[in-house]
Amino acid sequence: MIRALLPPAVGLAASPLLFAVINRTKAFFAGRRGPPLLQPYFDLWKLLQKGATYSRTTTWVFRAGPVVGLACSATALLLLPWGNLPALVAFPGDFVLFAYLLSVGRFFTVLAALDTGSSFEGMGASREVFFSALSEPALFLGLAAVAVRTRTLCLSEMVGAISPSAWAAEGPSLVLVCAALFAVLLAENARIPVDDPTTHLELTMIHEVMVLDHSGPDLAFIQWGAAVKLWLFGSLLVGLAVPVRTGDAWLDGAAFAAGMLAVAVLVGVVESCMARVRLVRVPVLILGAAALTVVALVLVVR
C-alpha cells in the first residue's frame, strides 16, 4: 500500500521540476543560465500566498475550473504504474478512465474560460476542444497497439510487460507508438510546436489564453495541474520507452527518473529548435501521430 502510494506522491511533488528542466534546456540553447531549478516551486508558493481577483461576469463554474482540473490530474496519477510497480488502481480498461479523467479536467477548464465572456478565452477554449478531440483517437489507438502486443487491457500489466525482449521483438511498432505518444504529449500539454507557453500574444495561444483571468491560488492550482498532466504523459511514455525491469526498486526508480529527465530535456530541445506551427497545421501533426499508431497496429496485429 505504502509502496503503491509512492508513485502518485512523488508525481504530485516532483512534477513542477519538469518545467524547470525544460526551461533550463531552453536557456542552455539560448546561451543563458536560466532560472534556478526550484523556480516553479517558488512561483507556486508565491501564488498560493496571494489574494485573488475575479471578473464580475463569472460564476461558480469559473472558481470550480482550477479545482476540478488539479483534482482530475491528481486522481489520474493513481492509475499510472511505475515500471514493474503496478498502480494503486489497476483494472482492465483503466487507461480509458485515465483519458476520461483528463477530459473532465479539460471540460471544466474550457467552461471556466467561457465563463469570463472574454473573446480571447473563448478562442483558446475553441482551439483546446478541437485539438483534444483529434488527439484522443491517437492516444487510444496507440494504447491499443500496446494492448494487442501485450494481450492485456490493464495499464499496469501493459507497462510491466515491456522488457528488453519485447523491444527486441516489437521494436518498430513500439518506436512508432512512442513517437505518436510524444506528439500527443506535446499537443495535450500545450508545448511547441502546437502551442507556445511563453508567448504574450493572446491571439496565438491555446492553453495559456484560457487561464488569463485566473489569479492567486486558482492560478497556482492551474499551473500545478498542468505540471501533473505533463508528468502523467511523461511517465506513460517512459513506461513504454524505458524497458528497465530489474526488480530492484532503486535501479528501476533511477531508470524511471532518468527517463523523465530525458523527456523533459527532449521537450526543451524541441522547443528550442522548432517554431510553433500555424494553427491550421496542428491537426495535420495530430493526425500524423494517429497515422503512426495505425501503422503500429498493422505491425502488431498478425
Binding site: G51, Y54, A71, G117, S118, P217
Partner: peptide, 24 residues
C-alpha cells in the same frame, strides 16, 4: 479530491483580499 481542494482554496482565500473587476 475536488472537495478537499475546494476546502484548501477556501481556507487560503479567507482573510485575504478578494476583488471583483471586469474581465481582462
Amino acid at each position: 479530491a475536488v472537495l478537499m481542494l475546494a476546502g484548501v482554496r477556501r481556507a487560503l482565500l479567507s482573510g485575504r483580499r478578494v476583488e471583483t473587476a471586469v474581465t481582462w
